[in-house]
């Protein structure tokens, strides 16, 4: 039975996956993580995620004003729904808006803000508050270390080279699978064949996911495809008027 702790002996710096869009929106966060907190921060395209701090936790970084306005509600809902599907733990860091000049713009606390926070809590989202990018980096570092203490740290190489890139993209098409689960599968299974032919328990080990998610991945690999069930494509000449 492969030892789970084999790869974590020798303790290299704990690592965080950072979405490439954070380079523009949170450059200080990234440099703080690396310089001040000594973490390995790997920047890549994470798709629907800001930060991944362990095998099971995603962290979403939003400004206070983003949470305060209902026009952003749809996107926030979509994001949290997809994060909850892919990750056991979802954390939101609410960061104070950056202000220009001396007058600190006090954001009026709205009923909408309170009800959004309440709903997020009701959905099991953890919430942390930060006054700026530096503090956000500090919170991310803390979360990473707490996850490490709970044996959930990312232990596989953060980069994928050569033909493993194809395997990574292959795994990323699985619905509800996170970037880090796909990364784990790339490194921890000998080949794609081994992943696809793995038992539920094997998938839980290889992808570093809970039994329920392992079950879903297993079912997906064994799912019987029926071309009739593909979504309808409009055929030329037929006019389907929407009601």
């Amino acid at each position: 039975d492969p030892s789970r702790t084999a790869m974590s002996s020798g303790s290299p710096a704990p690592c965080v996956l950072v979405d490439s869009r954070e380079i523009a929106s949170g450059p200080e966060v990234i440099s703080c993580l690396r310089v001040k907190h000594g973490l390995r921060a790997e920047v890549c395209s994470l798709g629907g995620c800001n930060f991944i701090v362990s095998n099971r936790m995603a962290v979403e970084r939003r400004t206070q004003s983003e949470i305060s306005h209902s026009q952003n509600r749809g996107k926030l809902v979509e994001r949290v729904q997809s994060l909850r599907a892919a990750f056991e733990r979802v954390c939101l860091i609410v960061e104070k808006d950056r202000t220009k000049g001396e007058t600190s713009r006090i954001i009026q606390r709205t009923r909408y803000y309170d009800s959004t926070l309440s709903a997020l809590l009701g959905a099991g989202t953890r919430i942390l508050f930060s006054s700026g990018q530096e503090e956000t980096a500090g919170l991310l570092a803390e979360l990473t270390r707490v996850e490490q203490r709970k044996n959930a740290a990312i232990t596989v190489p953060l980069q994928v080279k050569g033909h493993r890139q194809q395997a990574l993209q292959f795994y990323l098409t699985i619905p509800g699978v996170s970037y880090v689960s796909a990364l784990n599968m790339c490194h921890r299974f000998r080949s794609v064949w081994h992943t696809v032919n793995s038992s539920v328990e094997g998938l839980a080990w290889g992808a570093c996911v809970d039994p329920q998610r392992a079950e879903e991945i297993f079912r997906y690999f064994h799912y019987t495809f029926d071309a009739q069930l593909l979504p309808d494509r409009p055929t030329p000449g037929s006019s389907k008027r929407s009601l």
Binding site: V77, Q81, R84, A85, A119, L120, G122, A123, P175, G176
Partner: peptide, 9 residues
Amino acid sequence: HNPFRRKSR
């Protein structure tokens, strides 16, 4: 009724 809990998949 909690939109964040709903599974869209």
